[in-house]
Design a binder for these strands. Sequence first.
DNA 1: GTTGCCATGTAAGGTGTTACATGATTTA
DNA 2: TAAATCATGTAACACCTTACATGGCAAC
Lengths: 182, 182
Amino acid sequence: MSIKYAILGLLSWRSLTGYDLKKMFADSVALYWSGNNNQIYRTLVDLHEEGLVTQEIQQQDNYPARKIYSITEKGISRLKKWVLSKPELPDLKNAFLVQLEWADLLDLEELDTLAGEYEDEVLMQFMMLQAKEQPLNAAVARTPREAYLWGMIRESWITFYQNELNWIRKLRKELGEMESNG
Amino acid sequence: MSIKYAILGLLSWRSLTGYDLKKMFADSVALYWSGNNNQIYRTLVDLHEEGLVTQEIQQQDNYPARKIYSITEKGISRLKKWVLSKPELPDLKNAFLVQLEWADLLDLEELDTLAGEYEDEVLMQFMMLQAKEQPLNAAVARTPREAYLWGMIRESWITFYQNELNWIRKLRKELGEMESNG
DNA sequence: GTTGCCATGTAAGGTGTTACATGATTTA
DNA sequence: TAAATCATGTAACACCTTACATGGCAAC
C-alpha cells in the first residue's frame, strides 16, 4: 500500500528510473524498507497500467537502456488524495523488548552485555543518521514549507533514536544500581 | 521469527492455550501485531513438533476442549539462547511521514487538519496505554528484577508516544507561525 | 433474538525479503 | 582479478492480515 505512494511521491518530485528509486530507498531512513528490486519494478508496472505514470525508454551507448518514469496528472491527483487520507499510527516492532521480557533468565553480566549491544547499535544508527545528508533536503525542495516539512521528517527520526538511547542508558544505569544495593 | 519466541516466552511464564495467547497478544502493546489465529495455532503446532512445548487436552462440560501448552526444558534453553542473541534495531514504519513528505501539495488548512488527525490518534493511543493495566505486571512477576524489566518495557512504549506527541505539536505550532509571518 | 464468550482451526490474499540471472564497464 | 556501478527483471519463500467455518452457552 505505502510503497506505491512512496514511489508516486518521488516521481511527483522528479522523473526517475527503477534504478534511481532503488538508490533513493536505500539512502532514505524513512523508507529503508523495500529497497528491493522485486517490489520496485513490479510496482512501476502496476502504476503504469493504472495510468498514474508514463514510461520513456532511453537507449544509451555502453550501458543498458533506461526506463524513465514520469508522473501523470492522474497520478498527481491520486497522490494528493492519499496524502489527505486519515493518517495511521506508526507501526513499531521492537524485538529487543520481547527479548527483555524474558531476560530474567539471564544473570547480571549477560543482561548487561545484551543491553550494551543494544545501546551500541542504537548509538551507531543515531550517529549515522546525523552524519548522512538526506537526498531530499532544502537544496532540492520546491518551497520553504516543503524544506521545513522535510527537515521535520528528519527530526522525527533523530528524536526517535535519541529517545531510545536515553531509555537504554537509564535501564543500564538502574540495573547497575540494583546490583550494588540488592 | 519473533512470534515463535514471543509465544515461547509467554509459555515460560505459565501454561496457556491458544485462546489465552490470543487474548494476551490482543491486550499487549508490544505484541499488538499478530493477535490472529492463523499464526498462533500454526506456531503452536510447530513448537510441539520441535519438542519445545508439550500439549495436554482438557475436556470440559458445556465448553469446547482446551489444548493446554507447557514449555519443556528444551524449550527453555532454546528461549534463553534466543534472549542472548544480538539484538536488532527496532523496526519503525511511519506512513504518516511519507504523507508529510508530499504534503506541500496541500493548502494550509488541509495540512493542519491532517496534522491534527495524527495528533489526535497519537494522543488517544498514549492515553489508552497509560490507562490500561498490563497483563504482565509487578503482581505476576517472579522476581523484583523481572518486575523492573516489565516496567521498563512499558516505559519504552510510553516515551515513544510521548516523543511523537511532542514532535507533532511542535510541527503544528511552527506551521502556524509560518502562516502568520510568511 | 442478537451479541459476545469459549475454543479450535483453514483459506486466500497481500506484502516483504533473499537470492538468482544477465552482461558490459569502470575502479581498486 | 575481484568488486562495484549501471540497469533490468524473475523465483521462491517467509510473514502477516482478513475473512471464513463450527457450535454451544450466557447475558442483555
